[in-house]
Amino acid sequence: MPSSDMLKYMAFQLNEENPAVKLAHQQAFGKVEDGAIALNWKIKKTGTGKRSISHTGGSLGFSSYMVYYPELSSGIVLLSNQADPSTQNELIALADKIINP
């Protein structure tokens, strides 16, 4: 999937007026304050109380991380051609440095 498609997908996910998106972002397990799980998304509160909605992934030597902040109407998609055990955490840390809501 090209990176431009990932950005289109993020724009779709930022539209929480869409009933399908709203449903996908409702927590199904846990509390948002402690880190919750929605329909395939991880939801948590940032240090300033904003929601972050994210998911990691990887395949055949590649890793990815998508995180967005609905209240800020913004997010980040990070793609890496590395897939060792620390890559996902490194992508998450990099995203936190880029946007620190």
Rank of each mutant, 00 (worst) to 15 (best):
Q27G: 01
L94G: 01
S52G: 10
Q82I: 10
S54R: 07
N89R: 09
R51H: 15
P70S: 10
A28W: 00
S54N: 07
Y69G: 01
Y65Q: 06
L23G: 01
F12R: 05
I53F: 11
I37V: 09
Y68S: 05
N18C: 04
I98N: 03
N81V: 10
S4N: 06
Q82H: 09
T48E: 07
Y65M: 11
T48L: 09
K97W: 08
L91P: 06
L23N: 03
Y68D: 02
N18A: 04
S80Q: 10
P19G: 04
G35R: 14
V32W: 04
S80A: 15
H55W: 14
N40S: 05
R51K: 14
K42P: 00
A20R: 00
I76H: 03
N89H: 13
Y65N: 09
V67G: 12
S54W: 11
M1F: 14
S3I: 15
T87D: 03
S64A: 14
V77F: 13
T48K: 13
T48G: 05
T48V: 08
V77K: 04
N40E: 07
S73R: 11
I98Y: 07
G47M: 13
T56E: 08
D96S: 10
L78C: 08
N15F: 02
L7Y: 02
L91R: 12
G47Y: 11
A36T: 00
Q27W: 01
K44D: 07
E16L: 12
D5A: 14
R51F: 07
A95V: 04
G47D: 14
Y9Q: 11
I99Y: 14
S59R: 14
Y65T: 08
G47S: 14
A93W: 12
A93L: 15
K8P: 04
S64T: 14
A24Y: 04
S80I: 08
Q27C: 02
N89T: 08
N18G: 02
F62C: 03
V67M: 10
A95W: 03
Y65H: 15
T46Q: 02
L78A: 15
K22H: 10
V77G: 01
S59P: 01
R51I: 06
L72P: 01
V32C: 02
Q88P: 00
D96H: 06
T48P: 00
K45T: 05
N89I: 01
G35P: 09
I98L: 14
G49S: 05
L23E: 11
S54P: 04
S74V: 05
S64Q: 10
A83C: 03
S54Y: 06
I98C: 11
V67K: 14
S80H: 09
I99G: 01
G30D: 03
M10F: 09
Y9I: 12
H25V: 00
H25I: 00
N81Y: 07
E71M: 08
T87N: 00
L78M: 13
K31A: 07
T46H: 00
I37M: 02
H55D: 11
I98K: 04
